[in-house]
Amino acid sequence: MTIKEVSEYLKLAEKTAYRLAAEGKIPGFKVGASWRFRKSEIDRWITAQERGEA
């Protein structure tokens, strides 16, 4: 997923998604200068947030 896709999926502003990714608060990785996210990792992160883990 791209930063735009993950921000839409999480209902966040793109700027917020960039900040969370840069701070390591959401699971993602950079390909060159672009952030990429695996949907399965984002879903796992959401589950952990719901459980109060993080």
Rank of each mutant, 00 (worst) to 15 (best):
A54L: 11
A54F: 08
S40R: 06
L12C: 04
A21V: 01
K30D: 09
G28D: 03
R36H: 02
M1Q: 07
S34M: 02
G52L: 11
G24L: 11
A13M: 13
A48E: 08
I42F: 06
W45T: 02
V6S: 02
I26G: 00
E23P: 03
Y18T: 03
K25M: 11
A21K: 00
A33D: 10
W45N: 02
E53T: 12
V31N: 03
K39M: 13
T2D: 13
E8M: 13
A48I: 04
K30Y: 10
F37L: 04
S34W: 04
K15C: 10
E23V: 04
K30E: 13
W45S: 06
T2M: 13
Y9W: 10
W45F: 14
F37H: 04
L20H: 01
E50Y: 13
A22S: 15
K30C: 11
S40W: 12
A48R: 12
K15L: 11
G32V: 02
I42H: 00
E5N: 08
I26M: 07
E14C: 10
K15G: 14
E5T: 11
R19C: 12
E23Q: 15
M1E: 03
R51E: 11
R36P: 04
V31C: 07
I26K: 05
T2L: 10
P27Y: 07
E5H: 09
I46K: 15
S7M: 02
M1K: 00
A13K: 15
A33F: 10
A21R: 00
M1N: 01
L12A: 14
K4Q: 14
E5K: 15
S34Q: 10
A33H: 12
K39Q: 15
E53V: 14
S40V: 10
R51C: 08
E5G: 12
I26P: 03
Y18M: 04
E14Q: 08
A17N: 02
L12V: 09
T47Q: 14
A48Q: 04
I26F: 10
G28Q: 00
K4W: 06
I26L: 15
A22Y: 09
A21S: 03
E41Q: 09
S7G: 09
V31M: 06
V31L: 05
R38T: 02
K15M: 13
F37Q: 02
R51H: 15
E8K: 13
E50A: 08
R44Q: 08
M1H: 03
K25W: 05
K11A: 14
R44H: 11
S34G: 01
G28H: 00
W45C: 06
I3W: 04
R19L: 14
A54N: 14
E14F: 10
I46E: 15
A22P: 01
A21Y: 01
E41S: 07
I26W: 03
I26H: 06
E5V: 07
P27Q: 04
E41L: 08
K11G: 07
P27R: 03
E8T: 12
K30P: 09
G28M: 01
R38F: 12
Y9L: 13
R19Q: 15
E50W: 10
A48K: 12
G28R: 00
K11L: 09
W35K: 11
S34H: 15
P27E: 03
L10W: 03
E50N: 07
E8Y: 08
